[in-house]
Design a protein around this nucleic acid. Structure first.
Lengths: 107, 107
DNA sequence: GTCATCTTTGGCTATTCTACCAAATAACCA
DNA sequence: TGGTTATTTGGTAGAATAGCCAAAGATGAC
């Protein structure tokens, strides 16, 4: 069994990959304040609408967000409250000297 | 300012990307128990030595690991104690019903 | 029904990533 | 010095990803 086909690590890699894009991270951050429609997210990230839609479908496939249709619009909602911990943890990795890193990296 | 060229999100995306590969995750997990040389890691992930070396150089560039030469061997060491929090958080995302998720996702 | 709006999908190209092989480099030993 | 082992680097082919445009769906307004 190599690491490549171990489903345990494959699953985790897929989840990380679904987050590992500036626009997708920006969208996840925006969704922390509540659901947003695609047009809102499109304004926030500033890319083509079709590009935004594809990013969202990547994140939905990974289980990071869910979608719900309301009239013409489709609202996306964060499915992972834990995502803030991720960001806080990343922050402490990127800026290890900042004090708020302590609260997260206690191990 | 679009999300694409926002250095804040670019930086985070790069860090996630450096982790988003099954072999690299496997190596990070192995390094939690202490430094390992490339040959050890090569046995663990089961890929070609050159492939492993390139994975390590990706993680080193991202600041996830550091390297130190001892004789013929090069030992890699985890630079991010926080990495366990990442994994615990991912675990709770992937398996939201398991009890150990509670300890991490309290927000 | 037609029209307008919001979103997704298909197609295409360019870029990036990955893995293997072969060759080069580095360090130790005899 | 020459040989052996450990690691890195270069090259390359294939796969995956990203972005844009155009077209197609879906829904509501008229």
């Amino acid at each position: 069994m190599t690491a490549l086909n171990d489903p345990h690590y494959k699953q985790r890699a897929d989840l990380l990959k679904a987050m590992a894009h500036p626009s997708r991270l920006r969208m996840l951050a925006a969704l922390e304040d509540g659901p947003l429609c695609v047009c809102d997210l499109q304004k926030i990230v500033g890319s083509d609408m079709s590009t935004v839609s594809k990013h969202l479908s990547v994140m939905r496939a990974a289980g990071l967000v869910s979608d719900q249709k309301r009239g013409l619009q489709v609202f996306y909602e964060l499915r992972v409250p834990c995502i803030m911990r991720f960001f806080a943890c990343m922050e402490s990795v990127l800026n290890p000297n900042e004090s708020d890193g302590e609260a997260v990296c206690t191990t």
